[in-house]
C-alpha cells in the first residue's frame, strides 16, 4: 500500500490530491502504467512523462526508481518556486 499524491495540474486532471493505492509495481514506471490503465483521467494526467516529476518519500527520483519500501509517491509538473 502506497500513498500517492498529486500536485498542481496533475492533481486537477486526476481530481484528487491523494489516494492510497494497493500495488505490486516494482518501479515508478510500472505504477504509472497501472494508473494509466485505470481511467481516462489518469491516462490524461500521465500522457507525457517528460512533463512530470516524481518524488519518493519526499525526495526527487527517476521514473525507473524502485518502489520497495517507499511509503509516499508524489507526481507533479516541473517546480516553479522563487
Amino acid at each position: 500500500m502506497v500513498e500517492v499524491m498529486y500536485f498542481a495540474w496533475v492533481r486537477e486532471r486526476i481530481g484528487e490530491p491523494r489516494e492510497k493505492i494497493e500495488t505490486k509495481a516494482e518501479t515508478v514506471a510500472e505504477l504509472v502504467s497501472e494508473l494509466r490503465a485505470r481511467e481516462p483521467r489518469y491516462a490524461a494526467a500521465f500522457e507525457d512523462l517528460s512533463a512530470l516529476r516524481v518524488a519518493l518519500d519526499q525526495e526527487l527520483a527517476d521514473f525507473d526508481a524502485p518502489l520497495k519500501g517507499v511509503r509516499e509517491v508524489a507526481f507533479f509538473p516541473p517546480m516553479t518556486g522563487g
Binding site: A8, A55, A74, F76, P77, P78, M79, T80, G81, G82
Partner: peptide, 14 residues
C-alpha cells in the same frame, strides 16, 4: 539559492 529554489523546491504557481 534562487536558482535552486526556482527549480528544486516543490512550489507551483497558478
Amino acid at each position: 539559492l534562487m536558482d535552486y529554489l526556482k527549480s528544486r523546491a516543490p512550489f507551483w504557481k497558478k
